[in-house]
C-alpha cells in the first residue's frame, strides 16, 4: 500500500469509527477522493477508493459517502463545476424537452437530504443519459438496513447533461468495496464471539464444526477482498467493466454464504438490536440488490457466449497481461 493510501485509510479509520455526521466527512475531504487535483479534488485512484470504502463498510458508516464520491467523480469527469451540498446518485426514467426533465429517479440513497442527484435516465432514446438534477419532490423509502432510499419526482426542471455513461457498474463497484469491509468486520465479530462464548465447558472456537464454519466465512471475505482489489486495479489501468461485473457477482455470492455463517455462529446473540452484527449484515443483504444485483450475470454470460468456448479463457487473461 502506498504511503498516501495508508494515510488516507488511517484518517478514514479514525473518523468513521466515531460515527461522524455528514459535515465532518465533507470537512475531511472524502467525497472528493476521486476528483482530480486540477478540479479541486483529492486526486485519488480507484485503489484508494476501494480502501476507503472498505473502512466505511467495516464501520457500518451510515452516511452516503460512496454515492457522493461517485457523483463527484462523474461530475468532474464531465467537466462540470461541482455544486454545493450533498450530491447523491440514482436511476430513473422520463423525458427531456429543451433541457427540461420530467420524470422520476427511484430509490435514491439519502434523496431527501440531497441538494442534487446524478441520475442515469432511460428515455425513448436507445441509450440512457446521465443527468445532473436538482432536488425533487420526495417520497420517502428505506433500505433493509433502514437507510433512506427515496423516490424523487420532477416536472420540467432544468437538467445538466453529463454524458451517456451508465454509472450502474461503478455503483456496483462501490458496493463491492463496502461489502469487502463489512464482511471482513463480520468475520472479526464472529471470531471474537466464538473465542469469548463458552458452551459445553469450552469456548465455541474449540468446536471443530465452528472452526470449519468460520474458515468458510474467511474464504468468502478473501474472495470479495481480492475481487474488489483486482477490479480497482483494472479500473486504474483503464476499462474495468468486465472486472466490475465479475466482482459484484462474486460479492453477491459471498454475502449470501458469509452473512448466513456469521449469524449462525453468533446464535440468538447476533440477532439483537444491541449487538452490532446487524449493522453489517442488514446492509450487506440489501447491497446485493443495489446497482444491478445478479442481473450482471446475463451480460457477462452473453459476452462469453459471443465467442467459442476457448475464447473465454483468452478473453479473461488478455485483460491483465502487460
Amino acid at each position: 500500500m502506498s504511503e498516501l493510501r495508508a494515510q488516507v485509510v488511517a484518517t478514514a479509520q479514525a473518523l468513521f469509527a466515531a460515527a461522524p455526521d455528514w459535515p465532518a466527512i465533507v470537512a475531511a475531504g472524502f467525497p472528493l477522493l476521486l476528483v482530480p487535483e486540477s478540479a479541486g479534488g483529492f486526486g485519488g485512484d480507484w485503489g484508494d477508493a476501494f480502501a476507503v470504502l472498505q473502512v466505511a463498510g467495516a464501520e457500518a458508516l451510515a452516511q452516503p459517502l460512496a454515492e457522493a464520491m461517485l457523483a463527484a467523480h462523474l461530475i468532474a469527469r464531465a467537466g462540470v463545476v461541482a455544486p454545493h451540498g450533498l450530491v447523491t446518485i440514482g436511476s430513473g426514467g422520463g423525458t427531456i424537452r429543451a433541457g427540461k426533465f420530467t420524470g422520476h429517479v427511484a430509490a435514491v440513497p439519502w434523496g431527501r437530504v440531497a441538494a442534487q442527484v446524478v441520475a442515469t435516465i432511460e428515455t425513448n432514446a436507445a441509450e440512457p443519459v446521465l443527468l445532473l438534477l436538482p432536488a425533487g419532490a420526495v417520497t420517502e423509502g428505506a433500505s433493509p438496513a433502514g437507510e433512506p432510499r427515496d423516490r424523487l419526482d420532477y416536472r420540467g426542471v432544468p437538467a445538466v447533461r453529463l454524458g451517456d455513461a451508465d454509472h450502474a457498474l461503478y455503483g456496483a463497484f462501490l458496493r463491492v468495496g463496502q461489502s469487502a469491509g463489512a464482511l471482513g468486520a463480520a468475520l472479526g465479530l464472529a471470531t471474537a464471539h466464538v473465542n469469548a462464548r463458552v458452551q459445553f465447558g469450552k469456548p465455541l472456537a474449540k468446536l471443530q464444526a465452528v472452526q470449519q464454519s468460520l474458515a468458510v466465512l474467511a474464504e468468502e471475505v478473501a474472495a470479495v477482498q481480492m475481487a474488489g482489489a483486482a477490479a480497482a486495479a483494472a479500473l486504474d489501468r483503464s476499462g474495468g467493466a468486465y472486472e466490475m461485473m465479475a466482482a459484484k457477482l462474486r460479492t453477491n455470492m459471498a454475502i449470501h454464504r458469509g452473512v448466513a455463517l456469521a449469524h449462525q455462529v453468533h446464535g440468538a446473540i447476533g440477532f439483537t438490536q444491541d449487538y452490532p452484527l446487524h449493522r453489517l449484515t442488514r446492509r450487506l443483504m440489501g447491497w446485493r440488490s443495489d446497482f444491478g444485483g445478479d442481473s450482471w450475470a446475463e451480460m457477462l454470460g452473453e459476452q462469453a457466449l459471443s465467442e467459442r468456448g476457448a475464447g473465454l479463457w483468452a478473453d479473461m487473461v488478455r485483460r491483465g497481461d502487460g
Binding site: 468486465y242 465479475a246 466482482a247 455470492m253 457477462l300 454470460g301 462469453a304 457466449l305 479473461m316
Partner: peptide
C-alpha cells in the same frame, strides 16, 4: 438461465484466478 449461469461461473473463475 444459461447465460446467467455462465456469467456467474465466469465471475467465480475470474476471482479464483486473481486469488
Amino acid at each position: 438461465a444459461l447465460r446467467a449461469t455462465i456469467g456467474k461461473l465466469v465471475a467465480e473463475l475470474w476471482t479464483l484466478r486473481q486469488m
